[in-house]
Design a protein around this nucleic acid. Sequence first.
DNA 1: ATAATATCGATAATCGAATATCGATAAAAA
DNA 2: TTTTTATCGATATTCGATTATCGATATTAT
Lengths: 212, 212
Amino acid sequence: MSSISKETLQRLPAYLRHLKELQKQGVENVASKAIAKVFNYTSVQVRKDFASISEEAGKPKTGFSVNRLVKDIAEFLGYNNINEAVLVGVGNLGHALLSYSGFKDYGLDIVGAFDINPNIKLVHGHKIYNLSKLESFIKRFNILIGIIAVPKDSAQDICDLMIGAGIKAIWNFSPCNLVIPENIAIINEDMASSLALLSQRLSKILKKEKNQ
Amino acid sequence: MSSISKETLQRLPAYLRHLKELQKQGVENVASKAIAKVFNYTSVQVRKDFASISEEAGKPKTGFSVNRLVKDIAEFLGYNNINEAVLVGVGNLGHALLSYSGFKDYGLDIVGAFDINPNIKLVHGHKIYNLSKLESFIKRFNILIGIIAVPKDSAQDICDLMIGAGIKAIWNFSPCNLVIPENIAIINEDMASSLALLSQRLSKILKKEKNQ
DNA sequence: ATAATATCGATAATCGAATATCGATAAAAA
DNA sequence: TTTTTATCGATATTCGATTATCGATATTAT
């Protein structure tokens, strides 16, 4: 069935952002070519991406309905049915995550935040619970998503604790490789990996400029 | 020449982390199969990745020298010659980035932090400059990397300012699509994109469990 | 009404990355 | 010393994603 490619899936949120911007500007229709230009893709790719998530076809000479695309992408990404998540680790990064108001737009709601340090009480409207409450909280509210923002040395312990309590998907912000069973989803937010890519591209650009 | 694939490049930092861990444990040699198991790759992939960045071959029955791999990967990723960067936006996310001590290990040094709000003075040992100083700072110290951690509405302005001053690579943490000329490198740290992937994997897992 | 044009969808071709295969070889066991 | 075994590198294959091509069609212009 709806077997969408990983690559397409990852482009969708960016499309959506852009399309919402167009919507705000009152644009009603948009050609794949115009969108392709913004993102530096080919128009074929944009059309294929759209085709894989929307029933509505684009019209020759007119393009795609912006409203319809916004609706279909948001629907596909599940931005309408909110997922609840717990966050563990309310250090600098945890603070940043808790203060980010955009998650709800992406269908994510951090309903519980935990830290081993009981001094912290309230961060951006989120009450901070002691780590000892994590397990029962996850079980009681049947939470499926866990966000890890603790120092790397405790990340694996927190991960195990989460999985033991019933968490099925982990969003890991700690710079470490977590070992997990195979029926658990994980995304590592790996800054080192991004940075490697950026550095390489920078080198290429500098080399190019030199040779000109 | 050394045309390494994007995918390989992005796996390297994780390998390095793991290999350093092995090094700490006193492990001298490691088989590609053992590493593959940790990351859920095939051993062939691990070997190909290593082959693309190291001259040293692995030995049958023994595997690869951990020390040598650590040396070669770190060298390849440029973790020895540090890149200097400026950061703009010292809100919650900016705080988190400034407080992260790991960047230097990845060859990145945030040498200047800027904010439009002149009340902030010092964050984790970094003096915060007024945004008005950004351009001259970049020019004076010949900074090539700019980190954007401002609200999305001002991100494009900051981006333009950076590029105008000579920045060649942008690490964007704002949830928006920046428009840039083609001789500039950019990486978008797009949480919505990661989240989309995580949600999809979670759905798949839940569906699987239901059908069992 | 007819012709020109922009855009589409579907199919085919290309490209790049992951995986499988297999002969070679270093170390360990017999 | 000979055999077995774990592991490797190189090559071939498969797979998945991107890009190119082309005929069809809605709109606009003549």
